[in-house]
């Protein structure tokens, strides 16, 4: 996504962010438009955030969850989406476990497709809301240094953040055990760290990723305990590094695994602002796409 587009979305989101502070938080631009939320993978935060954004723009909203639908009866993604599109919808918001699924869907249906997270590929609106939150905090993105901590290999949030932040002129580092850093990631223009204490003193903000407890412990790193001891962001660790850093997390949080409770709830944490800004940013994206032409 080019810099101008990111700028436009973030600027547009400012006015919607203001709408969210009003007593009546609803505006009419998408009245008469129908948006289908196709969530082929379970999600609470992103699904509710999109749904709220759609409703606050006065769109009609169709919900969809993979469980109990035709997908569980063996229908293909293509057929499911084309059937829903046949009911005359205007936009699709899709979450899918397979990387590239929204890209594929956009080749078989007419409606605009918004990626709400695809596998280990991208999560564009999460990166946009992260950038919005950083810009709100620092009044700029240019020359900020952000470190993304944790499982970079499987993280769509990491990829989208790297693309977005690099485009906006920020410096991006990633930090995690070697087993969770994807191959050749430095070719994206990021610095790779394996020791969190080496990078902490250098950064303005940390974006801390969730560790998939069930999947990863034992195979990709030895144990949760060891992960916490070497990569967990704790008050003590931050104090030792000196200086204050802004703490972000896309959620859901594993308290005292990748982040300690006092850091998550501390004064430099913007985790809940991220959630609020998410609604404004998604309103901006929906508004800009839904009112084209």
């Amino acid at each position: 996504m080019p810099k101008e587009d990111i700028q436009l979305i973030l600027d547009t989101a400012v006015s919607f962010r203001e709408v969210l502070e009003r007593p009546i938080k609803k505006v009419p631009p998408l009245q008469g438009k129908t948006i289908a939320n196709l969530f082929f993978e379970s999600s609470t935060r992103t699904r509710l955030s999109f749904e709220l954004a759609e409703r606050r723009l006065s769109a009609d909203v169709l919900g969809f969850q993979a469980a109990g639908s035709s997908v569980s009866k063996g229908e293909t993604l293509k057929d499911t989406a084309r059937n829903i599109e046949a009911m005359k919808i205007d936009m699709v918001v899709m979450r899918h476990a397979a990387s590239g699924a929204p890209h594929y869907l956009s080749t078989v249906i007419e409606s605009a497709v918004i990626n709400a997270g695809d596998g280990g590929h991208e999560h564009p609106t999460q990166a946009l809301l992260d950038m919005y939150t950083l810009r709100e905090k620092f009044n700029k993105l240019q020359d900020l240094h952000i470190c993304i901590v944790g499982d970079i290999s499987h993280s769509r949030v990491a990829r989208s953040n790297i693309y977005g932040l690099k485009t906006m002129g920020a410096k991006v580092s990633v930090c995690g055990p070697a087993t969770l850093i994807p191959r050749d990631v430095e070719r994206l223009g990021v610095d790779v760290y394996h020791h969190i204490d080496d990078v902490l003193p250098k950064v303005d903000a940390l974006n801390i990723l969730r560790i998939q407890l069930e999947r990863d412990a034992g195979r990709l790193f030895p144990s949760i305990r060891e992960y916490h001891n070497y990569y967990g962001i704790t008050r003590q660790r931050l104090d030792k590094a000196g200086g204050e850093v802004v703490i972000m997390h896309p959620g859901p949080i594993n308290r005292d695994v990748e982040i300690s409770a006092d850091v998550a709830d501390g004064e430099n944490s913007v985790i809940l602002q991220q959630v609020l800004n998410g609604v404004a940013v998604r309103m901006a994206v929906l508004y800009l796409l839904g009112t084209r032409n």
Binding site: S99, G100, R159, R183, V185, R187, L188
Partner: peptide, 15 residues
Amino acid sequence: NEGFNSTTLGLPGMP
């Protein structure tokens, strides 16, 4: 294939 492209595409790689 595992490499830069699998990293950017977010697809599981075969080294």
